[in-house]
Every structure is written in C-alpha cells, then in structure tokens.
Design a protein around this nucleic acid. Sequence first.
DNA 1: GCTTGCATTAGAGCGCGCTCTAAACTGTAA
DNA 2: TTACAGTTTAGAGCGCGCTCTAATGCAAGC
Lengths: 129, 129
Amino acid sequence: MDNLLTIQEMSRQTGLSSHTLRYYEKVGMLEGVARNAQGYRAYSEADVSWVQFLVVLRELNIPIREMKRYSDLRSQGPSTVHERRLMLEAHQSRVEEQMRKLSGSLEKIATKIEYYKGMEEVPISVPPN
Amino acid sequence: MDNLLTIQEMSRQTGLSSHTLRYYEKVGMLEGVARNAQGYRAYSEADVSWVQFLVVLRELNIPIREMKRYSDLRSQGPSTVHERRLMLEAHQSRVEEQMRKLSGSLEKIATKIEYYKGMEEVPISVPPN
DNA sequence: GCTTGCATTAGAGCGCGCTCTAAACTGTAA
DNA sequence: TTACAGTTTAGAGCGCGCTCTAATGCAAGC
C-alpha cells in the first residue's frame, strides 16, 4: 500500500537524475515528499505520477517557472482546476504553433537537400548559398 | 547590382538584432562581410540569404556549433556538398523525432484537459495528480 | 565647434536548467 | 574497526545563446 521509493528508484522511474529531483523540490515543484528514519527522501506512488507529469510538461518545453506556477495551483486544491486547464490549453496552443513552425522550416531544409542531391549528380551549378 | 545594407537594415531583413549579427560573425558563421569607407559592415544580398538560412537552422534548434560546422563546410566549397547534405538529413531526422515526441506529450496534455473539463462540471471527483 | 546618431571593439553579464562539489551522516558488510 | 555505499545540505559552476556595456570614432546638421 505504501511501498516508498528511494531517490535512486525515483530516478529510474522518472528518468530524472537525483540531482534534478532535489532541484525540482527546491524550486517548489514537488512538495511534501516524505522522509524515512534516516532523513532520506521516501517517494510515494503519487509523487511518481506527479513527477512523470512534470516530465511531460518539460518535454513540451514549458519553463520551470510555469511548472512551478502550475504546481502552486495544484497545491491550492480543486478550486484551481479551471485555471490549470486554461494554462494547459495555452501551452497546447503554443506547442502547436511551434510544431507548425518546425514543419515550415523542415520543408525549407527538404528543398535544400533536394537541391544538394542534384548538385552531387551534376557537380557544375550555381549554389543558392 | 550591389546595394549593400547597413547592420540595421540587415537586422530588419533577418529578424536578428545587430548584437546577434555581430555575434554570429564573431563565432565564425558569417565570413567575408564587406566594410564601407568608415569601417561599417556592408551586407550583400548573398549575406542576407545566407543569414536567412542560418535562421532556419536556428528555428530547428540546431546548436550554434553545428551551424558553425556547416558554415565551415560551405566555406570549403562544392566538394563538401555531400557532407552538408548528410548533416541536413541528420538534423531533419532529429527534428522529426522531436516532433513525434511533442505529439505524444500533447496527447497526454489533451487527455488531462478533458479530465479537467469533466471535473469542472461535476466538482466532486478523484484527481489523477 | 558641438551635438546627435550610428557604427566599431573587447569583454562582461545574464537567464535558463541543470549539474556538480564538499562536508557530514548513517546503516551494512568484511 | 573500518571501509563502503548511499544519502543529506548549501552553494558553486557550467554550457548555451545571446545581450549589454564602455570606450571610441566618424559624418552630418545646427
């Protein structure tokens, strides 16, 4: 029921280093982590899923201060659910926009690659750059 | 035929600040920029399109040292076209992989948003985090 | 002659997200 | 008993990509 994890086990579960786990706690994104008799951190299953969610936010390039803001709202309980949803939707839009930009840039690169392929076949030509 | 640009005009054409333009030159990604009688930079049309290409690379989150490497190959002439193409293809793959990851993370966020919507309608529930 | 505006340089500074260090402590094994 | 492995903390350090500063110069307009 309460199989608690050491920081190393937590590191394995989340892919974050123990340094980073302590750092996330220090900046306030990870509150109420239990301690064992020796003062070592003892992470719960709830801690695991919360940190895994933080990792998703990080994968979306959401800045730490935004993750911290989200954490603070979460700590304030269910009354902040609406605001949390708005935050997630805002980030969703930003990432979608970012992906559109990436697609556009990828197309330009693809064009260049095709151009280079032509140059490799017929080595005399006028380069675009 | 040779309407050269001041650094400010170049800044407008590329979206990079004049500080950044000088920085790109300093790290070696922008060679052979002409100077006018007063020692001011005078950018050619070729410089413009090259920097615009660098901006595309930057939009793809390609590190400066890689852009520098690409610039060096370009300076060595057409014999490096094949290697340049391989670099671009490698970055292409990386960005595609990155976009797949973003898509996956976006889906998780979308799921969470739907969950929150349900919570906002019926305020008594068990939160996942 | 003086101010204004735009440019030059070398080099310092900054915000981000970690990442690492040093010193101290505890429990376990040899 | 002593070494080892794992943890703790505060705080320093780092790589990245700029971004800014200070001192200087030059050309044009008043």
